[in-house]
Design a protein around this nucleic acid. Structure first.
Length: 108
DNA sequence: GCAGTGACTAGTA
DNA sequence: ATACTAGCCACTG
């Protein structure tokens, strides 16, 4: 499988390094992660890196949402409900499928 | 190599 | 509020 390559690009590793710093009960956006990792404008790659990330890396992938405060995963996939329940378990409140970013956004 | 796709975003209308 | 656009770049066929 393509995702099981031994090495990932340095860019992906940088993304995951930043994501690892997002604390419990807080969220960050894809664009925010990209900018903090030193790749502003590469929000899409952040999403792709998570899609391709192997389970053995231990990162809070569920704390990453889009700039509208919504979950970017399709509801049909089942991953949507997983991400939402993981966040709610940490105290993040959803209102109309949306998180209040002004309240829950991680500020490094 | 080229075109399409995607866990994106900021801008404009 | 919605809709469309350009920019973004790794991956796939």
């Amino acid at each position: 499988m393509a995702i099981m390559k031994e090495r990932f690009s340095e860019r992906y590793l940088e993304f995951w390094e930043v994501i690892r710093q997002v604390p419990e009960g807080k969220v960050a956006t894809y664009g925010q992660i990209a900018a903090l990792a030193g790749y502003p404008g590469n929000a899409r790659q952040v999403g792709y890196s998570l899609h391709a990330s192997p389970p053995e890396i231990d990162i809070p992938w569920h704390r990453i949402i889009n700039a509208q405060g919504k979950i970017s995963l399709p509801k049909e996939s089942g991953h949507y409900d997983l991400q939402r329940s993981l966040l709610e378990k940490e105290g993040v409140i959803f209102k109309n499928e949306r998180v209040n970013l002004r309240k829950y956004r991680w500020q490094p």
